[in-house]
Simulated assay, not measured.
Amino acid sequence: MTTPAGSTRLTAWVHGHVQGVGFRWWTRSRALELGLTGYAANQADGRVLVVAEGTPDATARLLELLRGGETPGHVDLVVDDTAPATGEFTGFVER
Protein backbone atom coordinates (compact mmCIF):
# COMPACT_ATOMS: atom_id res chain seq x y z
CA MET A 1 0.00 0.00 0.00
CA THR A 2 1.46 3.37 -0.98
CA THR A 3 0.32 6.91 -0.31
CA PRO A 4 -1.38 8.51 -3.36
CA ALA A 5 -0.25 11.89 -4.71
CA GLY A 6 -2.12 14.80 -3.11
CA SER A 7 -2.44 12.93 0.18
CA THR A 8 -2.40 14.41 3.64
CA ARG A 9 -0.71 13.41 6.88
CA LEU A 10 -2.87 13.43 10.00
CA THR A 11 -1.08 13.57 13.34
CA ALA A 12 -3.47 13.09 16.26
CA TRP A 13 -2.72 12.96 19.98
CA VAL A 14 -5.57 11.08 21.64
CA HIS A 15 -6.17 11.84 25.34
CA GLY A 16 -8.26 9.75 27.73
CA HIS A 17 -8.32 6.10 28.76
CA VAL A 18 -7.01 4.89 25.42
CA GLN A 19 -3.76 3.05 25.99
CA GLY A 20 -3.86 -0.63 25.26
CA VAL A 21 -4.01 -3.17 22.51
CA GLY A 22 -7.78 -2.77 21.94
CA PHE A 23 -7.60 0.90 21.09
CA ARG A 24 -4.55 0.53 18.82
CA TRP A 25 -6.12 -2.50 17.10
CA TRP A 26 -9.38 -0.59 16.54
CA THR A 27 -7.46 2.38 15.11
CA ARG A 28 -5.42 0.13 12.83
CA SER A 29 -8.55 -1.68 11.61
CA ARG A 30 -10.35 1.59 10.76
CA ALA A 31 -7.22 3.02 9.11
CA LEU A 32 -6.82 -0.06 6.91
CA GLU A 33 -10.52 0.04 5.94
CA LEU A 34 -9.96 3.67 4.85
CA GLY A 35 -6.81 2.81 2.88
CA LEU A 36 -4.49 4.74 5.21
CA THR A 37 -0.86 4.10 6.06
CA GLY A 38 0.92 5.04 9.30
CA TYR A 39 0.85 3.90 12.91
CA ALA A 40 -0.73 4.13 16.37
CA ALA A 41 1.57 4.13 19.40
CA ASN A 42 1.21 4.51 23.17
CA GLN A 43 3.04 7.51 24.63
CA ALA A 44 4.69 7.67 28.06
CA ASP A 45 2.26 10.39 29.21
CA GLY A 46 -0.85 8.22 28.66
CA ARG A 47 -1.81 9.54 25.22
CA VAL A 48 -1.88 7.55 22.00
CA LEU A 49 -0.18 9.07 18.98
CA VAL A 50 -1.87 8.31 15.66
CA VAL A 51 -0.07 9.22 12.45
CA ALA A 52 -1.99 8.42 9.27
CA GLU A 53 -1.46 9.25 5.61
CA GLY A 54 -3.92 8.99 2.75
CA THR A 55 -6.50 10.96 0.88
CA PRO A 56 -7.83 14.07 2.62
CA ASP A 57 -11.29 12.46 2.86
CA ALA A 58 -9.91 9.30 4.48
CA THR A 59 -7.76 11.13 7.05
CA ALA A 60 -10.70 13.40 7.90
CA ARG A 61 -12.92 10.34 8.37
CA LEU A 62 -10.41 8.69 10.72
CA LEU A 63 -10.25 11.89 12.77
CA GLU A 64 -14.06 11.96 12.90
CA LEU A 65 -14.10 8.34 14.11
CA LEU A 66 -11.48 9.04 16.77
CA ARG A 67 -13.55 11.95 18.05
CA GLY A 68 -16.90 10.20 17.69
CA GLY A 69 -16.74 7.95 20.73
CA GLU A 70 -16.92 4.68 18.79
CA THR A 71 -13.50 3.51 19.98
CA PRO A 72 -12.98 0.80 22.64
CA GLY A 73 -11.34 3.39 24.93
CA HIS A 74 -12.72 6.53 26.50
CA VAL A 75 -11.53 9.49 24.43
CA ASP A 76 -11.54 12.83 26.23
CA LEU A 77 -9.79 14.96 23.63
CA VAL A 78 -8.11 14.65 20.25
CA VAL A 79 -5.55 17.28 19.31
CA ASP A 80 -4.68 17.11 15.63
CA ASP A 81 -2.54 18.60 12.92
CA THR A 82 -2.49 18.02 9.17
CA ALA A 83 0.29 18.45 6.64
CA PRO A 84 1.25 17.10 3.23
CA ALA A 85 1.96 13.35 3.30
CA THR A 86 5.57 12.19 3.30
CA GLY A 87 4.89 8.78 1.74
CA GLU A 88 7.21 7.06 4.22
CA PHE A 89 4.78 4.31 5.29
CA THR A 90 3.87 1.10 3.47
CA GLY A 91 1.03 -0.03 5.74
CA PHE A 92 -0.56 0.77 9.10
CA VAL A 93 0.95 -0.74 12.24
CA GLU A 94 0.54 -0.71 16.00
CA ARG A 95 3.66 0.36 17.87
Score class of each variant (00 low, 15 high):
residue 1 M to P: 12
residue 2 T to V: 15
residue 4 P to C: 13
residue 4 P to W: 12
residue 4 P to R: 05
residue 10 L to V: 03
residue 12 A to T: 02
residue 15 H to Y: 15
residue 15 H to V: 13
residue 17 H to G: 07
residue 17 H to F: 14
residue 18 V to A: 10
residue 18 V to T: 06
residue 19 Q to Y: 03
residue 21 V to Y: 05
residue 23 F to L: 04
residue 24 R to S: 00
residue 24 R to F: 02
residue 25 W to M: 05
residue 26 W to H: 13
residue 26 W to D: 04
residue 26 W to V: 04
residue 27 T to V: 11
residue 28 R to P: 00
residue 29 S to R: 11
residue 31 A to K: 03
residue 31 A to S: 09
residue 31 A to T: 01
residue 32 L to S: 08
residue 33 E to N: 09
residue 33 E to S: 09
residue 33 E to A: 14
residue 34 L to C: 10
residue 35 G to K: 12
residue 35 G to F: 09
residue 36 L to W: 14
residue 36 L to K: 08
residue 39 Y to P: 09
residue 39 Y to T: 05
residue 40 A to G: 06
residue 42 N to Q: 04
residue 42 N to R: 11
residue 45 D to C: 06
residue 45 D to P: 05
residue 46 G to N: 02
residue 46 G to V: 09
residue 47 R to E: 08
residue 48 V to R: 03
residue 49 L to A: 04
residue 51 V to G: 03
residue 52 A to P: 08
residue 53 E to F: 04
residue 56 P to G: 08
residue 56 P to L: 08
residue 56 P to Q: 07
residue 57 D to P: 06
residue 57 D to E: 12
residue 58 A to I: 11
residue 58 A to P: 06
residue 58 A to G: 13
residue 59 T to K: 01
residue 59 T to A: 08
residue 60 A to I: 12
residue 61 R to Q: 10
residue 63 L to N: 07
residue 64 E to K: 11
residue 64 E to I: 11
residue 65 L to N: 11
residue 66 L to Q: 03
residue 67 R to N: 11
residue 68 G to M: 08
residue 68 G to I: 10
residue 69 G to K: 01
residue 69 G to V: 04
residue 70 E to N: 06
residue 70 E to F: 12
residue 70 E to G: 14
residue 71 T to N: 13
residue 71 T to L: 14
residue 72 P to M: 00
residue 73 G to D: 03
residue 74 H to T: 13
residue 74 H to I: 13
residue 75 V to G: 06
residue 79 V to E: 13
residue 79 V to L: 09
residue 81 D to E: 15
residue 82 T to C: 02
residue 83 A to M: 08
residue 85 A to C: 12
residue 85 A to L: 13
residue 86 T to D: 14
residue 88 E to H: 10
residue 88 E to W: 14
residue 88 E to A: 14
residue 89 F to K: 01
residue 91 G to L: 12
residue 91 G to P: 07
residue 92 F to P: 08
residue 93 V to L: 12
residue 93 V to H: 10
residue 93 V to M: 09
residue 94 E to M: 13
